[in-house]
């Protein structure tokens, strides 16, 4: 499995999925004109990755997303659903969602995401 790295831009987050460390990181704002186009290769990678996972590995997924527009938010939900499915299949997955204390909307957003998921979902203050 090759590492997936996409450099961040003003409107798209940096993607750093490193299978050797079992650590997937998404950091940055997300409001591209066509969110689906941006996230599609990421979905593809995640699908392949999950298929690949063998044994009891702890997969840590980090989100640091100060702003997600509504269409990106749909994509993030799709992404989280994939992890939820993997979790349901018995994969060891943990999600850490980092937020800025002053950024209420990202907390609300994360809380909304969390509501629909049963996998471990930690809301962490990135300032601490």
């Amino acid at each position: 499995m090759e590492r997936l790295y996409i450099e961040g831009t003003k409107s798209t987050p940096e993607i750093d999925f490193d299978p050797s460390k079992n650590n997937l990181k998404i950091s940055g704002q997300s409001y591209p004109e066509n969110a689906f186009k941006f996230y599609e290769p990421i979905f593809q990678w995640v699908d392949d990755y999950i298929k690949d996972i063998q044994g009891e590995l702890l997969i840590e997924i980090e989100f640091k997303m100060p702003y997600i527009n509504s269409s990106s938010s749909k994509c993030i939900i799709m992404l989280l659903d994939k992890f939820q499915d993997a979790f349901d299949e018995g994969k060891d997955i943990i999600i850490n969602w980092y937020y800025d204390e002053e950024n209420e909307s990202t907390i609300e957003c994360a809380e909304e995401f969390k509501e629909d998921l049963s996998l471990p979902f930690n809301l962490l203050d990135s300032g601490r």
Binding site: Y67, E104, S105
Partner: peptide, 17 residues
């Protein structure tokens, strides 16, 4: 959400509720 999500300020964070 356009109003409260608009980024700006010192930290470049959304305007917020």
């Amino acid at each position: 959400d356009g109003y409260i999500d608009q980024n700006g300020g010192e930290k470049d964070l959304p305007y917020g509720k």
